[in-house]
């Protein structure tokens, strides 16, 4: 016969920890001088940061509905979600690759407004919900090649930029597409201080030729791994151009303008001898300070993962080659 349950202590409502206190327990413990043992063993990219106690709630995205499009997707091994969301160049939040994951949670990405204007017949404004619901979403598993000679394989969720541009109806004079990231120094510490932001002139701007922008590979991404984008990856909407170096794939976009002249681009403005307007992945044209002939693929595995692979022309997306026929790609790097 089961024994009747007899509590060893009698608790009343008065003994229940207040909900606010409970939810705030981490900060309270910290203020009392405790550092969780887990913090000592936490996976930090910096040995120097061993004693940081940052138990931030990880970002939780909303699941998205999408179709899969294998025609444009690679079957190479994907970079784990943790790595995709913790190793980012997003100088608006600091120049270290761990900074975006640490500081981007301050970004308010809902509400949001993305404006498409300039040389268009029909200017478009998309609010946060429109970004996720106007066009049918699909998943594209793309290779991402950073100009720093590392690469990842990432399943993006989004829609072709061409769909949005077709809705805006470019005028016949439109030759280029200019993109702009949000400028909000109160939430982006790198915009607040020249030092934190690496001396970059903000807002971050990028550009494509209209035919590049209309190419079916060019994606506006609103999600990664099937959920909405974390802020460090460019929430709520970002560009993904898989055959160009990563810095072309501008994050947290607020404006897309059609123009008749080649628009200025941030890295080109900063160091035009190192970063061109086109920035196509090209193993034959080195960065002045390092080789672009090969890259290290960030996937699973530690120090001994033999992850150095050859870099392919246009990052392996040969179908874009006709866009650049008769162009000297060492001159227009």
């Amino acid at each position: 016969m089961p024994k009747p349950f007899k509590p060893s202590v009698r608790l009343t409502d008065n003994d229940v920890t207040d909900e606010d206190v409970y939810k705030d327990r981490r900060r309270l413990l910290k203020s009392m001088g405790f550092v969780g043992a887990s913090a000592l063993l936490a996976n930090k990219a910096h040995g120097i940061g061993w004693f940081d106690d940052d138990e931030k709630e990880p970002f939780k995205g909303k699941p998205l509905e999408f179709s899969t499009n294998s025609e444009y997707s690679t079957e190479q091994a994907q970079t784990p979600y943790d790595k995709v969301t913790s190793y980012n160049n997003f100088y608006e939040f600091g120049t270290d690759k761990g900074d975006p994951a640490e500081y981007a949670d301050k970004l308010t990405y809902n509400p949001w407004q993305l404006k498409v204007d300039g040389l268009v017949e029909n200017p478009v404004t998309l609010n946060y919900d429109d970004l996720l619901n106007t066009y049918s979403l699909e998943e594209r598993i793309y290779r991402l090649r950073c100009v720093e000679a590392w690469s990842m394989v990432i399943p993006w969720t989004g829609f072709e930029l061409a769909k949005l541009l077709k809705q805006a109806k470019p005028l016949s004079g439109a030759k280029y597409v200019a993109f702009e990231t949000l400028y909000r120094p109160s939430e982006m510490r790198g915009q607040n201080s020249r030092f934190v932001g690496g001396g970059v002139e903000y807002p971050y701007v990028e550009g494509l030729r209209l035919d590049e922008a209309m190419h079916p590979l060019t994606l506006m991404s609103v999600g990664v791994y099937g959920n909405t984008l974390p802020p460090q990856n460019g929430a709520p909407i970002r560009l993904v151009v898989p055959w160009k170096y990563g810095f072309k794939s501008i994050k947290s976009v607020v404006r897309i303008a059609l123009t008749d002249k080649e628009p200025p681009t941030t890295w080109n403005r900063l160091a035009s001898n190192e970063y061109g307007f086109y920035a196509n992945v090209n193993p034959k044209v080195d960065h002045p300070r390092w080789s672009q002939a090969s890259e290290r693929r960030i996937a699973t595995g530690g120090l001994f993962a033999r992850n150095r692979i050859e870099t392919k022309m246009f990052n392996g997306y040969e179908e874009v080659a006709p866009l650049y026929k008769d162009m000297n790609l060492s001159r227009y790097y």
Partner: peptide, 22 residues
């Protein structure tokens, strides 16, 4: 210890870069 963390893949997304910096 830092090499140990690198070998066991506990140095973030890119252990190589983390070790070079360290």
């Amino acid at each position: 210890f830092q090499f140990f963390l690198g070998v066991t893949n506990q140095l973030g997304a890119d252990p190589v870069e983390a070790l070079i910096n360290f």
